[in-house]
Design a binder for these strands. Structure first.
Lengths: 183, 183
DNA sequence: TGGGTCATGTAACCTGTTACATGATTAG
DNA sequence: CTAATCATGTAACAGGTTACATGACCCA
């Protein structure tokens, strides 16, 4: 139940429609939390039912109406409770199909595995570019937010992303070297 | 759809019951893929229906019967197809509630955040111990498997685990330092 | 005598994914 | 003229989580 809290966190910065939230989410939290647009709409409906949010319909001419969501006091409380709570050991684990494939790779040739690893490195590198973009978006947006302490936290999560992707690349290179030595 | 393939991979080493698979899974793949016991049973039932597995009931006196699963030729094919396929960009991302909390931590005090980070470091350290245990289990088991190439791949995934946890610790320490400097 | 392990699951629920629908406006 | 963008979603399904059930054995 963290997507809801992520959305609360974003709405705490300011009112937004589902559409805007979807874009804000994908521009900021997407590296460490992924969500489908349809899922965001579903959660918003549920959150309004829970009274964490209220909404206001704003008619537009030509375009469909905007449904602007606003965090309620109850929602702000919930956000703070969540921020202060300590969960969870799950966070140490990683869900990584690629590692599972590597685990079983004795079933295929080393050459094939080396190819996959090289492919993987390329993907990591293009993700590093995407991270750099996310970072600059965040930095830019940070200028407009009053509480400058946000910047420190946003930068810290971005740093995690960079270090993580660099780790992946380094790990894949080391694995390739090992495979080349034994074959 | 990767839990099924993980189970196929394990059954490719030898026949096992659901119970044994659950333990084998948790002793080896658990770091990069997590699964509930009940989920494993559900997937096994589905996989037998798909003809990826066959099963044999072995009566025991006193204890409940053992239901021993065996990978079929169809299952072995499926495993190889999966191992040779290239998915997926999802693998670059991370799902980490903790990072989402850090992102929004300007809402709580720096002291509270520093506390959470210290707590987090402790968790990482105890997970490092668990990883060391997993690694030695795998190494031991590796002695009994014919194809020694398995060892290389298993070691590589374990290395990823160690590097990752060390990265988490290092990142948390750096973040604490930054927070201490500004407060 | 009470708790842990062996071994099998079921049921209900929550979360995430994929595919589709609508219909006007604007940019290339 | 075509594709993308704006803005809202629904439906069906797949995958993951939590809680519970059974019953005998073994160990302290």
């Amino acid at each position: 139940m963290s997507l809801k809290h992520g959305l609360l966190g974003l709405l705490n910065y300011g009112d937004m429609t589902g559409y805007e939230l979807d874009k804000a989410f994908k521009a900021s939290l997407n590296f460490f939390w992924q969500a489908q647009t349809s899922q965001i709409y579903r959660e918003l409906t549920a959150m309004e039912k829970q009274k964490w949010l209220s909404s206001e319909i704003i008619p537009q001419q030509g375009k469909p109406n905007r449904k602007l969501y606003k965090i309620t006091e109850l929602g702000q409380n919930e956000l703070k409770i969540w921020l202060s709570s300590t969960d969870s050991q799950d966070d140490l684990k990683v869900k990584k199909v690629f590692l599972m494939k590597i685990f079983f790779s004795a079933e295929v040739s080393s050459l094939e595995t080396i190819e996959s690893l090289k492919q993987y490195i390329k993907q990591c590198q293009s993700d590093l570019d995407a991270m750099a973009l996310t970072e600059s978006t965040i930095t830019e947006y940070g200028q407009t937010v009053e509480d400058k302490r946000n910047m420190v936290y946003w930068a810290s999560t971005a740093n995690f992303g960079f270090s993580y992707l660099n780790l992946c690349i380094h790990w894949a290179q080391t694995t390739i070297k090992t495979l080349e030595e034994i074959s």
